[in-house]
Amino acid sequence: MDEQKRIEFEKELNSLRRDILLMLYEAKSGHPGGSLSAISVISYLFLNVMRFDPANPLWEERDRFILSKGHAAPALYAILARVGYFSPKLLKTLRKLGSPLQGHPDSRKLPGVESSTGSLGQGISIAGGIALAGKMEKKSYNVYTLLGDGEIQEGQVWEALMAASQFKLDNLCIFIDNNGLQIDGPVSMVMNVDPIADKLRSFNLATMEIDGHNPDEIENAFEFFKSNKGKGVPTGIVSHTIKGKCVSFMENKSEWHGVAPSKEEVEKALDELGCIESLEDWLTEGITWER
């Protein structure tokens, strides 16, 4: 990746992290840790890889993204607003009564949300079904899904992987957001899922491990997926990430799985991201800044 593209991507990413923090601060509940670990891959996907048209959300040929770890909804909402599915002002309504920005994504309420998710283990099956429909209809679209590493403790995930291989879904790219933590503590302590990559390989997925915060490696992962198309195998990417990425006091802390930041905490976090001034804009106007 050339330097210019990298700088621009990091800048975008920083704005999205800011949006996630502000949204959660406003909502007073939600999931910062897993949103911040996942946003790097999700934002790269939307900004550089997927074909879609916010003016025509149901365009048949669009690529699809299913957030299987639905609790990272703030990450999804931040990027959907960024690419133009809805006004960034809506971000202020997260988790409030009547808002289309439900605590977990709801396809019936918000354009750009391909399927409701949130109940862990189900999104990957739904993504598989969409990929299977694409194969059946000989459509060229790709289906991307992102799961948590704790999520893969759900048996349904392995049922879905078996089916993805059985039906040769090489239009399906499965990311595991491997931040190593779940609500009750380290994944390895709660219910170990390692070695994830070996497990994916043994389920006949073309598998790759990446640093899920390194733009070059994220780019490589999508190149890898592209190179597997036509080979009849689904792609699995184990994305090594940091829960709470870029906020020092949230990083690698399972306590930050499902707690919103206080005023002081959000100030500290925004300060670390270099955008403390955005808090004032947010509190007064909603998001009014130019990107």
């Binding site: 598989g128 079904g129 969409i130 049922e159 879905a160 078996m162």
Partner: peptide
């Protein structure tokens, strides 16, 4: 070409069916 045996995995079958339905089937 329009029949899929999902194996003995009913939870996943419902999910795949949902994905198919989201795709207009």
């Amino acid at each position: 070409e329009r029949f899929f045996n999902m194996g003995i995995a009913e939870a996943n079958m419902i999910g795949y069916a949902a994905g198919m339905a989201l795709s207009g089937k």
